[in-house]
Amino acid sequence: MRWDEIYVESAAAEFGESQTGEEAVTEGLLPVEEWEKSRQRSVSVSTTRAAPELAVAAGRTALARSGRDPRDVGLLIHADCWYQGLEFWNTAAYLQDRILGHDDCVSYELRQMSNGGMSALENAAARLAAIPSTKAALVTTGDRFASPAFPRWSTDRGLAFGDAGTAVVLSRTPGPLRLIATAAYSQPMLEGLHRGDEPFLASGSESGVLDLVARKKGFMRGYSSEEVTTRNEEGMMSAVRSCLAEAGSDIQEMAVVIVPFFGARLSQFQCLGPLGIKPEVTLQEFGLTVGHLGAGDQAAGVAKLLEDDTLKSGDRVLLVGVGAGFSWTCAVLERS
């Protein structure tokens, strides 16, 4: 989809405290060889704030940076991957109340795993384009991968999970980044990679410690690694190619490419290699200090770009979202 006059006005990210990879190895949270492969220097760990509280903090900061009156925001979409602090409640309504404090807003939670923030951005752009009375939209993400249920350093291989809330304000008013194009693609045959051969349970209270490595092993008993790798790569590249075609751009023209904050080795295998790009054009070094932020990697990356203010007018940025399921959503932004 090619977009006209949709802008990112501001972005923000809220982090916890830093836990280093060396500390994780010393505490027995992961084997030293896995740490050496990922080169994950540290991750963000929230010891006191739940995921929605991190999202509230990021949302308030992004709104303040935009200079917007909260009543301008007519849409709030919250994306997440993991536990939001309570069962059977409305996270998006909580955020609407705590960040905006008014009733004249559509708010909802979107669950598309690590692709959720990117999918929410595309959905927000669609509402802004279709309903002129929506002056601005707020997209938030929030996840806290707390132990013991979620062993952030070892539940999966090749990456470590970090806690953060993020927020992006979009509108039709010219801002620092213009949304040029988006595209999405899905490959539902791969959903079993995160389900494995585990049975469905009656309630979350029956769940034990999350082990994504075991789930993937269960799924792979019925598929070849070559087939899964091919489908994964083709899915991402389909979304990327469509997005770049809509934007009239080539990936080599991108000043920055923001891919998920995986560990260095996994990022090379799943993202950089297929895309044909070097780590230097990405925010890999930043990602290796905060960890994979669930649905928030791309928004946190945009916030960092705006804070660092290193983009020149006309520079383009490619955002690549990848989510379990599997789904991919990409976007091209241009510095105003």
Rank of each mutant, 00 (worst) to 15 (best):
P260C: 02
I180P: 09
E27P: 15
W89M: 08
P260Q: 03
D80Q: 13
A245Q: 12
A50N: 10
S207A: 15
L170D: 03
K312Y: 07
Y94C: 13
S186M: 08
E206F: 08
V8S: 03
L159T: 11
S249V: 08
E9M: 13
R41W: 06
S224R: 14
G192V: 00
T329Y: 02
A58W: 04
L275N: 05
A137F: 11
E22T: 13
L275Q: 00
R241I: 04
G16N: 08
R241H: 15
G196T: 03
R172P: 01
L305T: 09
V169H: 08
V169A: 02
E53L: 05
T141F: 01
L76A: 06
C243T: 05
T329R: 11
A331R: 04
L244F: 12
G158Q: 05
Q268P: 06
H78R: 05
G263K: 04
S42D: 13
N90H: 12
T310F: 04
A126W: 05
L275D: 02
M1C: 03
E191V: 12
A255T: 11
L121I: 11
H292F: 03
W328C: 07
T289R: 15
S107Y: 13
H102K: 03
L288R: 14
T289M: 10
T155W: 03
E22N: 14
D309C: 00
G162N: 02
E122L: 13
E227T: 14
R98K: 13
S313H: 14
L210E: 11
E36F: 04
E226Y: 15
W328R: 04
P274M: 00
S336K: 07
S238I: 09
G263I: 06
H102Y: 07
G323A: 07
G273W: 01
L86D: 12
L110W: 03
